[in-house]
Design a binder for these strands. Structure first.
Lengths: 229, 229
DNA sequence: TGTTTAATATGATATTAATCATTTAAAAAA
DNA sequence: TTTTTTAAATGATTAATATCATATTAAACA
């Protein structure tokens, strides 16, 4: 059960591969494998997280609540993602809530073991900088996307994003299942609107819908739609 | 003219104060003071920036263009802000365009002189991490704000933000002048809608408008509006 | 297995905001 | 200063999206 970080393949997907053998060994000695069931909250907005999670398996959503309690999904994680670094870096409460969208297994790495290499290992620190900058770039793109594109465009965009990020089966079924409410929250629209637009896409032969499964039938046209053509 | 960074007061507003005397001296020796007239572009989306700018005086907007060429303002800078760090950290093209909103004077610091302390000076590196994380936090808040709040709410929110960030005269006039188009772009709405909402706020006695100047008359009610009450 | 609860779907309607058209006012340029 | 250009304002209209109501389906549970 207690596998060694040094041998862990997941780290090839993230910045932990910039750590030295000694640093990895220390992490390996004190890390903890946590599992979360679908729907379980990994950490919440407003709470301090005392370490960083490395997602080994499963998908999470990062979301915020607005003043009226409406949820906005700001990011989806993928395998290998390091989450919860905000608290570790800033010593401030987290500003997002991360929730498992399916069964998730993640290694919990105590803060100190991240902070030390962040100060001492330039390779790791540079890699982490790139990650945070990339997250910021994506967030800026999302701002522009939400405020200048229509809900139709954003829905088409989300479907393409989900396919590109999580892949699809040979039959074309996207390998992530979201509720209509979650889809609406990611797109930034009302649940009913999301449902209507998905139904419309189905009627137009762009996608197929079976329960929570989405199958892309016409990716080219979806991409055109996403660009507003 | 060639003032020394070591004595510069602006650095007290940003992370450069975490640098050692030697590091500051190096920067001082090769920095360049650039001035930009109102409306001038400091650097553009898609271009590489070969250094970081430290804003000594003036205000800038950071914006992106969407596929249809519509501008979205994603951030306003203030005195002391370090801008253009994205390229320096990631070695990638910049993803935003920064434009002077009034006359701006900024010190240009070549990339190497930032990169080296970023690797070697943990205090500076930690400070920069906090800045990027804070920018990311703000961007996430903007996503939630734009997609869950109405244009009215966001307009009220922007007015409060501008007052808090740039201050106001004794008479209550906010110390930054934006065109209606820029206000619309920051709020994420059409120019006509922005104009209409501002006129509405004026009619309701919340603000006063004289040319491009905005005066807050009822901050409490504006804050209530921003929260959707 | 039946019963309850929650999720999805869809119609009708209301609201919000965008677009188009035109006027007025303010800057910039000749 | 006059002319030209650009920005701001406002009305009318259309389009997009949210909300409310209700039906249908699927999932959870007793």
């Amino acid at each position: 059960m207690m596998s060694r970080c040094e041998q862990c393949l997941i780290k090839e997907f993230n910045n932990l591969n910039a750590l030295s053998k000694e640093e990895l060994k220390k992490i390996s000695d004190s890390k903890d494998i946590h599992t979360f069931k679908k729907g379980e909250v990994i950490f919440s907005e407003g709470k301090f997280v005392t370490g960083v999670y490395c997602i080994k398996e499963g998908v999470c959503k990062s979301s915020q609540l607005n003043a009226n309690g409406k949820e906005q999904i700001v990011k989806f994680t993928k395998k290998g993602d390091l989450i919860g670094y905000h608290s570790a870096i800033t010593n401030e409460a987290n500003t997002i809530t991360v929730t498992a969208l399916n069964d998730v297994s993640a290694c919990f790495i105590p803060q100190e073991l991240i902070k030390k290499p962040l100060d001492e290992n330039a390779k790791f620190s540079t890699a982490m900088f790139k990650t945070v900058c990339s997250d910021l770039k994506e967030a800026n793109n999302a701002i522009t996307n939400i405020s200048t594109n229509t809900v139709h465009q954003r829905m088409a965009d989300l479907i393409i994003f989900l396919k590109d990020t999580y892949g699809s089966t040979e039959a074309g079924v996207i390998k992530i299942q979201l509720s209509r409410k979650e889809i609406a929250s990611a797109v930034g629209t009302a649940t009913e609107s999301a449902i209507r637009i998905l139904s419309g896409f189905k009627k137009d032969g762009l996608i197929d819908l079976t329960g929570k499964s989405i199958t892309i039938l016409n990716e080219i046209e979806l991409k055109r739609l996403a660009e507003g053509l």
